[in-house]
Amino acid sequence: MSAETLEKPVEKAVKEPLFSKRRRKFVTDPLDDDNPVTIQVLGICSALAVTVKMEPTLIMSIAVVFVIVFSNLIISLIRNTIPGRIRIIVQLGVIATLVTVVSEVLKAYNYPMYKVLGAFVGLIITNCIVMGRLEAFAMGNKAWDSVLDGMGSGFGYAWVILTVSFFRELFGSGTVFDFPLFEKIGLANFPTNGLMVDSIGAFMILAIIIWVQRTRNGYVEN
């Protein structure tokens, strides 16, 4: 603790509560005003690829939250030992390890999902959100703050892709979590929309989400 205080003399001497206002912002900001997908427009590739159905999307969200939180934590813990010149490769190493572990666990305990998501879980390594948070936040902040920041970005990513997948599955396949919603409410003939199953559908829904969000937040293009 003393070493940490020496490093950053501006830090308050009194112990900050675990969920102080400043820390709560780490989690809440990326959910809306600083959302990684809709504002920073990162992680679009997987937002398009895995959102055809809700179940794989949920698994993907959990995987991303796990990877982002733990890589943030690990990098933050070792940030003072990482040599600056190879920091990117160190970050990549940590992310790739976590992603491989997730992928192996999935293969062992949920093989059908592994088959659906296989390649995309691997691609979390290249998800700009994860690396962006490591480089921009975890390299310069303490462990707990970094965990909160990871959660914020992870959940910010998760709610957007879950929303996208909800509409894509509903209108593309007429189901929600494979539950035939339209059929159950007496609309057996509801026509499914092929566009929604295609990546284009994800773009359209994503754009609508951004539109709604910007209108609500009064965003003005400079």
Binding site: E104, V105, K107, A108, Y109, N110, Y111
Partner: peptide, 11 residues
Amino acid sequence: LGPAQKKSIEL
């Protein structure tokens, strides 16, 4: 995880 994976692949 090897054994569990083998099992799920067999299944």
